[in-house]
Design a protein around this nucleic acid. Sequence first.
DNA 1: GTCTATAGCTGGATAGAC
DNA 2: GTCTATCCAGCTATAGAC
Lengths: 210, 210
Amino acid sequence: MNESVKRPTGRHHGDLRRALEQAALELVAENGPGGFTLAEASRRAGVSVAAPYKHFADRGALLAALVLRGYTEQRERYRTAMAARPDPAGQLAAFAEAYVQFAADQRALFELTFAAGLDKARYPDLVEAGSSLLELLDAPARTLRGDGAQARGLVLAVAASAHGQAVFLLEGVLADQPDPLAQARRQAASAAKALTDAYGQTPPASKTAP
Amino acid sequence: MNESVKRPTGRHHGDLRRALEQAALELVAENGPGGFTLAEASRRAGVSVAAPYKHFADRGALLAALVLRGYTEQRERYRTAMAARPDPAGQLAAFAEAYVQFAADQRALFELTFAAGLDKARYPDLVEAGSSLLELLDAPARTLRGDGAQARGLVLAVAASAHGQAVFLLEGVLADQPDPLAQARRQAASAAKALTDAYGQTPPASKTAP
DNA sequence: GTCTATAGCTGGATAGAC
DNA sequence: GTCTATCCAGCTATAGAC
């Protein structure tokens, strides 16, 4: 992918901002979340270490931009995956499957959203974007369970299960399986279904409206 | 920050090795897995930056020791928690609960086992110790499902769900709940039960315990 | 918008005295 | 086993030229 164009380090980029983000992602993919440095990303983008500061306030700003992109991309994916299903239970399962798929497709982006190590107080937008992801599950969960607290429980159960499968997949826990990705996807989906069924059994004496 | 505390920096420790590990854990607890440096740990232990090298080959060796300790401690906890239950399903639930509890009690140790960023090829012992954790679930899972592949699925489903709950708890996703820890524990346990029930429905014609 | 140059800092690791 | 001293590397960020 990266042609051996060893930039004489003097050319201007069409979109340095994007190039830096891309380089950062590669670094994270190769060396983990802690493996990203502004200096190395600059080198890979073929610019000096000073150039990034025209596009990002500091190192953290670049990371924050990536995390935000990660959330946005996830949201879009999950929304699409869920929209393809008519039934609430199917939507929850679709989410779980898409969650695992995203972790596999965009490993660096996925890891960053959980391990960027950013000061949450300094980037409140990210917290917002993160919680908006789980909100996608509110509609189907409420359709199934009505009550707020119990619906919330179902949302968390499905998401937690999917997250665990995703982490296990990336961490190599499933390495002994024939097709780890397919395995994780299937597991996440069927766990979502099982959790939905189990939780759906207990509407505590009908809808307890607040 | 603490420069006023000018350690005489000349005293000998009873157990520097342990003191360094402890300081490292505090660093991770405060600043995340990436927040650990040998230099800062040395400062906190009240010794020079050269001292650690008499106890650890390098920075990675200290981290590896911690990760190993984390696995050992987890194993012991899970074993104990499971031993208190007579039924396989209860054992799986007990594991899930204990898993969340460990993450809460030993946050730094828990985070390190997943984000130490160690070269797995260089520390094969850690991989071994890690997978031995899930093996604790094999016995109850096999009792419930007999078949190897299906039992494996149940093991992974329960563990993944527990892991997700633990991460959500630490990440603050449950911050809007009254008692996040209790919530996560309960959720992990009941999810384990739900998954056990669902997966237990399809035993390949072997003896299924009630 | 990008470069060169640089300041300032922190960390990992080693050598040799005690 | 611990210290002092030191080296070297790498990163972040800024200033000023073009």
